[in-house]
Amino acid sequence: MDGEELTEQETALYDRQIRVWGADAQRRLSKAHILVCGINGTTAEFCKNIVLAGVGSLTLVDDRVATEEALSANFLIPSDESVYGGKTLTELCRDSLKDFNPMVRVSVEKGDLSNFGGEFYSKFDVVVISCCSLSTKKLINEKCRKLSKRVAFYTVDCRDSCGEIFVDLQLHKYSKQKLEETIECQHNYPSFEESISVPWKALPRKMSKLYFAMRVIERFEDAEQRKPGEVSIADLPGVLKLKNEFCEAQSLKESHIPDALLERLVTDPREFPPVCPIIGGILGQEVIKAISGKGEPLKNFFFFDAMDGKGIIEDLSNNTGS
């Protein structure tokens, strides 16, 4: 299979991107199977990117029925209620995505992702999780890690004007260009659980504040048994209280997690539309890198905040002892 050539149609369509990542990477992409759980503006952007890039297949999981709110940052859903009414987000997105690139198979899978067994996840090369709770993230990540096949695992979240990406490629081998040479490298990724268990005191002093804020909100929603993003300004006192407990237990100065940042994250947990293409774009690039094995992949968190405009990488791999 590896020697298989791209068709004339593929060469013509993908001409400009083959010039970026090469024909070999394009062949690997066309054989990759991607799972996306949780549809929002950010994952819609991601789906668009990898369908355009020409992956083999894309499977969508999210049983939620489309509502007016879901339209806000998602361009894959037609605005006409007579069209979207009664349909699930995944069905609507599938129909739009199919149009983007007839060479990619886009399908929908129904069901609750925490009930899917390992066998389900083993059908994929890449699993992207969004809009789900802390415990679900950990659970799926562990399921993927137990498979004999290596599955690239990502979580992505976007709230207000902030975004977070987590990456677990397990033991990942890749090549990168250094000057004229191609160097073979490998990196051992920690799991989500291992990463977020690193004691806060052990983290670099300049660690992104967004990392801490996301952990607080995530824990708050989990403890209160809320759906992801189901918080409001009324929850701020509860969130601030949890933050203080966290800081005390972890011996971190409270000023390290600004109240104003937490306030922004709970006030409007919806995505600020321009942030979606940024997070969805970075995630798209990372997934392409992981599939092609070309280029240095992201290790192992990425944060973006439109307030300061920085897109920052935080690598906790070295703090986890893995």
Binding site: R19, V20, N49, A53, P277, I278, G281, I282, G284, I288
Partner: peptide
């Protein structure tokens, strides 16, 4: 050289 992701970002 051009890819979708960079343009989106």
């Amino acid at each position: 050289h051009a890819v979708a992701t960079t343009n989106a970002i």
